[in-house]
Amino acid sequence: MNNKPIVEVAIAILYRHGKFLLQLRDNIPGILYPGHWAFFGGHLEPGETPEAALKRELLEEIGYVPEVASLFDPYPDTYVFRHVFHAPLTVELNHLVLGEGWDMDLLTPEEIQRGERYSEKAGQVRPLGPPHQKILLDFMDKFPQLAA
Rank of each mutant, 00 (worst) to 15 (best):
L54H: 07
D26A: 12
K4N: 09
Y75I: 10
P50R: 13
G63R: 08
A12P: 12
L58Y: 07
P34M: 04
T90M: 11
E67D: 15
L21A: 11
L96C: 08
G129T: 02
D73W: 10
G99S: 05
F40P: 09
F139E: 00
R82D: 13
R56D: 05
V97N: 14
P144V: 02
T90D: 15
L21S: 10
G18R: 01
L44T: 02
K121W: 03
I6K: 14
L21Y: 10
L54P: 09
I31H: 02
A147F: 00
E51P: 03
M104Q: 01
N2V: 11
H83F: 15
A147G: 00
G35L: 08
P88H: 11
G63Q: 09
A87E: 06
V84W: 08
L96Q: 08
R16A: 13
E45S: 12
G18F: 00
Y79L: 14
E57K: 14
Y64D: 11
F139C: 01
G129K: 10
P34T: 05
E92Q: 11
A38N: 14
L24P: 00
P34H: 10
P50C: 06
E67Y: 09
T108F: 09
F81A: 07
D73Q: 15
G101T: 05
I11N: 15
Q124L: 12
A53H: 04
A69P: 04
Q23E: 15
L93Q: 07
D77I: 12
V7T: 14
E100K: 13
A52W: 00
Q133P: 07
D103I: 05
F40S: 09
L89S: 04
E8L: 01
G18H: 00
L21G: 07
G30H: 08
D77F: 13
V84L: 07
I62W: 08
P130T: 10
W37C: 02
F20K: 07
V80K: 11
L98K: 06
E45K: 13
E48P: 07
D103M: 09
G18K: 01
L146V: 06
E51M: 03
G42Y: 12
P34N: 05
L106A: 08
